[in-house]
Amino acid sequence: MSADVLFELKNVDKKFVRGKETITIFEDLNMTLDRGDFIAIMGPSGSGKTTLLNMLGGVDRPSAGKVTFAGEAISSLSESDLAKWRADHVGFIFQFYNLMPMLSAGHNVELPLLLKKMSKAERHKHVAAALKLVHLDERASHKPKELSGGQQQRVAIARAIVTDPDLLLCDEPTGDLDRATATKILEMLQMLNQEFNKTIIMVTHDPEAAKFAKRQLHLDKGQFVDKEI
């Protein structure tokens, strides 16, 4: 394995059992992802994009095979170790932002820091820096419902990067936004990739959004049909 390889999926199967029926999503899937990459995963509905993202993010496990992250087999970690691994290495950005509606933007961004041994003052410093990076430092005290969709997604980005993770996993991050706002969000992700060397894996249906990535991978029926476009 090269020093730059961040993720490696080896002989990964993923199957769901629904009643008497077994649905195969992936069979013998193999792939590697390098550190500092920005990959857009595309494909039709049901192709396994989100399932792949879930396995890379440690929120789902393969039925067989191995997922390794920086040499560590995350597919065999216990639930609590996996939760800790996610807290240490992964920032999630969701299509519908998934902010806590009752908390202010600042408190939403602070949530992942509660998992770190950090004083309140340190946490506030990190929150301020993350919000500044997404140009929302003036909106720290606003509740999500007082922010536009684009602003909410920027809060979600700040929450994803506040712990300085290696990896950002984005599930249709612009799927709920208009084109102009989507472009700003994608530029922000590009900036995080280029200036802060964040590895970004983005699932999207949108070819325009995919153009912001360094690489595009196409999934169809559980296999990469055309790895490089």
Partner: peptide, 14 residues
């Protein structure tokens, strides 16, 4: 459900 699952995804334990 979404809030709880999001917290768990972020790394909160059960």
């Amino acid at each position: 459900t979404t809030e709880v699952a999001t917290l768990r995804a972020i790394g909160f334990s059960s």
